[in-house]
Simulated assay, not measured.
Amino acid sequence: MIAAEQVRAFRGMTRAGTRSVLIYRGDLFTGAVTLVIQVVLAIAVWRIVYSGRPPVNGVDGTTAVAYAAIAVCLQSALLPWQFSSLPMRIRTGQIATDLTRPLGLMWQALGQNLGVLLARLPLGAIGLAAAGLLGALLLPPGLSALLLAVIATVAGAMIAMLCNLIVSMVAFWTLEISGPLIVYRFGSSFLSGSLIPLWFMPDWLRASIEWLPFQAQVYTPVSIYLGQTRGAEAVALVGVQLLWLVVLTLLLQAVWARARHKVVVQGG
């Protein structure tokens, strides 16, 4: 009975997160227009870069353009400007009410983040539709690649939500986290491969990035979908994603244990 109530509570937080996005129709329209512009610019830039050039590192222009378009759409869904209400609730003191609810605070935050992600999926679909109209999309090399890419996309979304929540929890110490959020957004965009695919980076930089969880968010699913990563290597990358899910979950629990103590010190 308790488990069923918690599931219902989690679903309620997910619905609340979805409504918090859908209620602002003007923002949704602006976001859709902005994403389409980003997709068009990404396609134009990579087509210019590859104009009259042979494949680079085994990647031809068509694949690079498709990667850029898909990565922009995926990143827009995984990293919204306001990906969590937790900092605001900490700043206003609403966190005290959240802590009294039967559903744990971390599950509340994850449910809300999931709702935001689901609400932003149509924006990504609009971006992909624009890329399709411009002839920038490619089909995966086979059904197995498509299925593995779907699994990698879901795992990447979960990794992104955990990373986003960990960054949001900085608010327990600083209250105002606009600066850290901006740094995180730009850093994540670069390190995830959404701006520049990892196969174009120097070996020393790529080796360093592969030790971080960001490339698992965008580069892994897109590279598998386009067939640039295949077979055992693709399965290994999905395995790395699963490992990061475990590591980030443990890290979130450790940060929350410290943050809970901080709330007590603040007199929450």
Rank of each mutant, 00 (worst) to 15 (best):
V45Q: 03
G142D: 04
Q217D: 00
R230F: 04
V56A: 12
T30K: 12
Q75Y: 13
M88V: 04
G58P: 08
L226R: 01
V167A: 04
D203R: 14
L162W: 02
A64P: 03
I182C: 04
A96I: 10
L74H: 01
A145R: 09
G58T: 10
A254E: 04
W256L: 13
L105V: 13
D27Q: 12
I23S: 13
W46F: 13
A32M: 14
R91P: 05
A157C: 11
V21K: 09
L198P: 03
G31N: 09
V72D: 05
V59E: 05
R15E: 00
Q217K: 06
L245S: 02
G231F: 04
S178I: 06
T62G: 01
G227D: 08
G132T: 10
D60G: 15
I43P: 01
R25D: 02
C163N: 06
T18R: 11
L134Q: 08
L22V: 11
R19N: 05
I166F: 09
P87W: 05
L205H: 01
G179H: 07
V33A: 11
P202N: 13
Q217V: 12
G61R: 09
T92D: 08
T229V: 15
L41W: 09
A129S: 12
L117K: 11
G267N: 06
L86G: 02
V154I: 15
T14N: 00
W211S: 12
G58H: 11
R11K: 10
V235R: 05
W107L: 06
V263E: 11
T153G: 08
R206H: 04
G115Y: 07
C73P: 04
S208N: 07
V116L: 06
L250Q: 11
P180S: 11
I2S: 11
I70N: 03
G26V: 08
T34Q: 12
A119V: 01
E176S: 14
L117E: 03
L250A: 14
A145H: 15
A96V: 10
L114D: 02
L99Q: 10
V170D: 00
G115R: 06
G268K: 12
I23R: 13
Q266M: 09
V238C: 03
F200S: 09
E233A: 15
A69W: 03
P102Q: 04
R185K: 15
R47E: 08
L138H: 04
Y225Q: 07
V240Y: 11
G93I: 11
T30G: 14
V263G: 15
F10N: 08
R206G: 08
I224H: 05
G193F: 05
L133T: 02
A232P: 01
V33S: 02
G268R: 12
Q75N: 08
E176C: 09
I95F: 07
A96S: 13
I196G: 03
R19A: 15
V183W: 14
G239P: 02
A42Q: 00
I177M: 06
F10V: 02
L138F: 02
L128C: 05
A131P: 05
G31C: 09
R19I: 07
V218L: 07
Q253T: 11
L226Q: 02
S144V: 05
F10C: 03
G231C: 10
T18G: 10
T174G: 00
R260S: 10
M13H: 09
A64N: 06
A42S: 10
N164L: 10
V49K: 10
W46I: 04
W256I: 02
A160P: 01
A232Q: 14
I166Y: 06
L123Q: 12
E5D: 13
V238N: 03
T63V: 15
T30I: 14
D27C: 05
